[in-house]
């Protein structure tokens, strides 16, 4: 079998294993899905009026439109915390040592985790999106292509964060540490334009918020779904995603190739 075919076959076997785990033990996935849904309801129904007027005289439904793109990305951040935890858990299992002594594609264990986790992220995003639509979110003038582009960006973003989370899972000695290490991935949206616009933040902080990975992705989603200006944010978002994905991939695979303790 050629190397590519071997890689594909072993990776799909590992993916099946991961999906089996997720199906058998859905509680982790559901818990992580609950966070963004709770936040969505909190920000719209409890804080929506105040924040809506804060972003420029809008009401609750304006704020719903404003906050959904950020929450969709936060959903990904939340899902990949689960990835870090399950990678870390997996590495303590004897089965991983067995995989290392088998003539299989080395990276397939990690690829299985990543693909499974990206699928899970996309599924979670669709669910959170459905809740948003159910409580009144409407995309203004977004065509099919815009929707596809938005979904593509979300998937790419999920891929990037997942590889980073896999690296965090690999360097964490246990599940608790993995969960803590991956925490910034869900806190970072709070320091972005997800909940309040950049110009409402202190001046010294604005550049940090503007160029961190979440803001360009959020602004691009806003552009695609709500017709706002995308500007340089599109390229910035794609650049961040590719950069983080490559970084996470190199970090994770080199970490996995090391001798286990």
């Amino acid at each position: 079998m050629s190397t590519v075919a071997l890689t594909a076959r072993d990776s799909s076997t590992m993916l099946r294993r991961n999906l089996l785990h997720a199906r058998r033990y859905p509680s982790l996935t559901l818990n992580l899905l609950l966070t963004p849904i709770m936040l969505l309801l909190l920000f719209v129904y409890i804080l929506g009026d105040a924040l809506g007027s804060g972003i420029g005289g809008g009401d609750r439904s304006d704020y719903l439109a404003y906050v959904v793109p950020g929450l969709l990305l936060m959903t990904i951040g939340s899902t990949v915390i689960g990835t870090a935890v399950s990678v870390s858990n997996d590495m303590t299992e004897g089965i991983i040592a067995r995989f290392r002594t088998m003539a299989i594609h080395r990276g397939s264990v990690l690829v299985g985790h990543v693909v499974g986790s990206v699928l899970q992220s996309v599924l979670s995003v669709v669910l959170v999106g459905a809740v948003a639509v159910a409580i009144g979110f409407r995309s203004t003038d977004a065509g099919v292509l815009d929707w596809l582009a938005a979904l593509g960006l979300l998937a790419l973003f999920a891929l990037a964060l997942t590889w980073i989370a896999v690296g965090m899972g690999l360097v964490s000695p246990n599940a608790e540490a993995a969960s803590n290490n991956a925490m910034p991935l869900i806190l970072l949206p709070l320091l972005s334009s997800a909940f309040v616009p950049l110009h409402a933040m202190p001046g010294w902080f604005q550049p940090i918020a503007e160029y961190q990975p979440f803001t360009p992705a959020i602004e691009t989603l806003r552009g695609l779904l709500l017709g706002a200006q995308i500007g340089h944010n599109g390229w910035l978002a794609v650049g961040w995603c590719v950069g983080l994905a490559v970084l996470g991939y190199v970090w994770s695979t080199s970490r996995f190739d090391r001798d286990p303790a």
Partner: peptide, 9 residues
């Protein structure tokens, strides 16, 4: 020495 089975399945 430590079982190399996948306990979850």
């Amino acid at each position: 020495q430590f079982s190399a089975v996948d306990n979850l399945i």
